[in-house]
Simulated scan of single mutants.
Amino acid sequence: MAVLPLVAGEPTSPFECAAMAADLTNQVCHWGSRGVGYINADVTLTLSRLPSGGELGLRGENAVASAGISVGTATLYDRARALGTCVVTALSNAERLIDLADGDR
């Protein structure tokens, strides 16, 4: 993930980098062969430490769905090791899948 400044001329803090990465948890946990089938309703980020550097990754762990609601979890890590967990609550959007691979949108 590239580290872009949130405010021109101001450095992005390690916490801001982690929060930006956490915002992608829905895509990591719910991206299927036809696109993203859920709309992000809420995300929770928990950290055991701040990231070292701006290169972060998310590893989708699971997604559990019932009656149009899904909860997905992902591990957030930097180059050293895991540093936190992201949990997303999402609502089904099966009728209007979002295909992020489509370059025409």
Rank of each mutant, 00 (worst) to 15 (best):
V28Q: 03
V28N: 00
H30C: 11
H30N: 14
W31Q: 13
W31H: 11
W31Y: 09
G32T: 11
S33V: 11
S33Q: 13
S33T: 14
S33W: 07
G35S: 05
G35I: 02
V36P: 02
V36W: 07
V36D: 08
V36K: 06
V36F: 05
G37F: 01
Y38F: 11
I39E: 15
I39L: 11
I39C: 10
N40S: 14
N40F: 07
A41R: 09
A41L: 06
A41C: 09
T44E: 15
T44S: 13
T44A: 14
L45Y: 04
T46I: 06
L47A: 10
L47Y: 08
S48C: 09
R49L: 04
R49G: 04
L50G: 03
L50T: 02
L50E: 11
L50S: 05
P51M: 02
S52G: 12
G53Q: 09
G53P: 02
L56T: 05
G57P: 06
G57W: 05
L58E: 04
L58I: 04
R59W: 11
R59H: 13
R59A: 15
G60N: 01
G60F: 01
E61K: 08
E61C: 08
A63P: 02
A63V: 12
A63T: 11
V64L: 11
V64D: 14
A65M: 09
A65G: 13
A65V: 12
A65H: 10
A65P: 05
A65I: 08
A65Q: 12
S66W: 08
S66Y: 09
S66V: 13
A67P: 04
A67T: 13
A67M: 08
G68I: 07
I69V: 14
S70R: 09
S70Q: 12
S70Y: 01
G72E: 01
G72R: 00
T73C: 09
T73I: 05
T73Y: 04
T73L: 08
A74H: 00
L76W: 00
Y77E: 15
D78R: 01
D78I: 00
D78T: 02
D78V: 01
R81K: 10
R81Q: 14
R81P: 02
A82S: 12
